[in-house]
Design a protein around this nucleic acid. Structure first.
Lengths: 156, 156
DNA sequence: TATTGTTATACTCTATAACTATA
DNA sequence: TATAGTTATAGAGTATAACAATA
């Protein structure tokens, strides 16, 4: 089995022949749909953009609001509201930038760190459950594609 | 050529060593972030869920509202509003199900078909532009992973 | 005057609960 | 009574435009 020509199992070998346009179209659709499926939005959970912003702050240290907006690909007003919501829950701390009092630096609070760990594992479990339905070959192709998917995030 | 074990090409085999949990976590994040980046939401465009619903209707023929909600992974009231918005724009037609007058069958209107073609190509172009920044190997890994990504959409 | 953020306004998406119409 | 869908209500995410504070 393992399809030297790849026709039967359809696992790897022959899939690369799809056209660029089809790749783009299918990728666009699957990303939108997968995003809706792994969403949670339960009242006890942190909403998706709020969570994503927290992850970015955790990974990249104190960040300016505008920089965070850029990294999350949302407008500055949108990020301003997201941070206000997170601040209100005590999950982030906004401090004036000592170098430039117009700006704010965002960091996670201790509660934010704890909350992030909880919610992150819960949400990741949703994806892991779906991954568990795939076979090892399919999971390997996903793992192999991950760097390319992440590279797609880069702007220009 | 070959690919009997998948190791021989070298560009796939060795990346699959990341853990399942890390795969799930990174996949979850990248899907959310990529989704925000390929969004458009311009006033002249059809909003994301409306577009996705139109694609599903086009692909799977006349569909019941509840079936459409299931396929798009949203609640019935959410889909009801999406269809009302599409109907108001003349993009879909809702007709009572002749077999059961409680239900409605949704189809694309002629205008819906045309609109879908326009917006779809525009939005796909955004993804294609990002794909163009990748090298051929990366694009091949994405193409190879597409069936697995689509398989992740299936519920149970 | 230019830049950083916030607030005002408006619309999409989202769910749960309450309701209407049909089976 | 049960089911399909709609409407009510409320909250998150979204953008552009107008504003405030600082550089």
């Amino acid at each position: 089995m393992n399809g030297t020509s790849g026709r039967d199992t359809g696992d790897i070998g022959d899939i690369g022949v799809i056209e660029e346009a089809e790749l783009a179209a299918r990728l666009r659709l699957v990303v939108g749909r997968l995003n809706r499926r792994i969403r949670i939005d339960g009242r006890e959970s942190v909403p998706p953009l709020q969570l994503s912003a927290m992850v970015t702050v955790e990974e990249h240290g104190p960040l300016r609001l505008s920089e965070l907006a850029r990294r999350e690909a949302v407008s500055v007003p949108t990020m301003s509201r997201v941070l206000a919501a997170l601040d209100e829950q005590g999950l982030v701390v906004r401090t004036p930038d000592p170098q430039d009092a117009r700006g704010v630096l965002v960091t996670l609070s201790g509660g934010g760190e704890r909350r992030l760990a909880e919610v992150r594992s819960h949400r990741t479990a949703l994806v892991a459950r779906r991954l568990g339905r795939l076979d090892a070959v399919q999971r390997a192709t996903l793992a192999a594609a991950l760097p390319a998917l992440e590279a797609l995030l880069e702007d220009e």
